[in-house]
Design a protein around this nucleic acid. Structure first.
Lengths: 185, 185
DNA sequence: GTCTATAGCTTGATAGAC
DNA sequence: GTCTATCAAGCTATAGAC
């Protein structure tokens, strides 16, 4: 394990911003190179299967981020209300107050390949499960909890699209602030 | 006005499917050429400013489609409930039962230029106005009507993203079926 | 592990024949 | 109005020096 000028963590984080901003097809190796500070050949040394492997690493990093910052805190201490408010804050930061797109959106468009599509789907399913669980824990029946979880994520994703098109984040911030009432009894 | 092998209408319609599927950067001239049945040089004859002009024509065509099939019917005959059910059916068709993406989403990602972004924003603002109007007409106060309109469009766009990632259209169809209760008193 | 240099292909766009 | 042929630039990916 030799020294790396740029840590894998920092590398994938920089790549994630490129993919979420430009989508899979718009995330060129030149842009990835500029964002990460590594030349294209160095990116191939780290990710021998090229752009598709980088995108997959990004999707998995995002899934890990959600596990650590959303799913796990939802099972932590405090009342369900406290926990939802905590992860609402995390989501607000993750999406840059609504100014940044979701990789579920931008990476699912086309060209990404089956492994990427599967990773995105797995991440979204985990998100649905975590939201369903906290909703159930707050006292809602299983079926209702599932609907609330679907509803909440639909609103986050939809608001991000509208924020991008309208060029303001009012609607996104409103959805984030409504997360407790969307998920809890 | 000389004869065209492919009507402007059919040409832009075919291009729209390419843009909504692949996004702006993924909609290459090769794909546009294959989809429209015209060689690249012929596309440049029709749209001298190239890909950006085609995308703009697509956005304007979508805006016109919404005017004719959504905004105008919402001001037509019948009860508000009847009208909303009518346009819900139109939207379901437009989005291929949830299998097709929204151009507001796929064209707003990056690379499209300012004129395209402005056209997308104008289309969305028109949609918001039309939904607000029918909601007000059904008896809701102005501020509530506006919130209902925002909510309904957020849910349509969000459900389309989730349908794409999850690879099933259950959630989209549910949103479409809920449009009357979302918009009306 | 990172770099420069380069291969081979695809891109957006143009010229000119018909 | 459409086509074939072509261009420069950009793309993904690789070879090889350090």
């Amino acid at each position: 394990m030799a020294l790396s000028r740029v840590s894998n963590e920092a590398l994938v984080a920089a790549a994630a911003e490129v993919f979420r901003t430009h989508g899979f097809e718009g995330a060129t190796l030149r842009r990835l190179s500029e964002a990460t500070g590594l030349e294209k050949a160095s990116l191939y040394h780290r990710f021998p299967r090229g752009k598709e492997e980088i995108a997959l690493a990004v999707a998995e990093r995002v899934n890990q981020w959600f596990s650590k910052n959303v799913f796990e805190p939802l099972e932590g201490d405090g009342t369900p209300s406290t926990r939802v408010r905590l992860i609402a804050h995390k989501l607000r930061e993750f999406y840059g107050d609504g100014s940044k797109s979701c990789t579920l959106d931008t990476l699912s468009l086309s060209g990404g390949g089956d492994a990427l599509a599967a990773a995105l789907q797995a991440g979204l399913l985990g998100w649905l499960e975590a939201f369903t669980r906290i909703s159930k824990e707050s006292g809602l029946p299983a079926a209702t909890a599932r609907s609330r979880a679907e509803q909440a994520i639909i609103e986050v994703e939809g608001a991000l699209v509208l924020s991008r098109v309208l060029r303001h984040n009012k609607l996104f911030l409103k959805v984030i602030s409504r997360l407790p009432e969307l998920l809890l009894i």
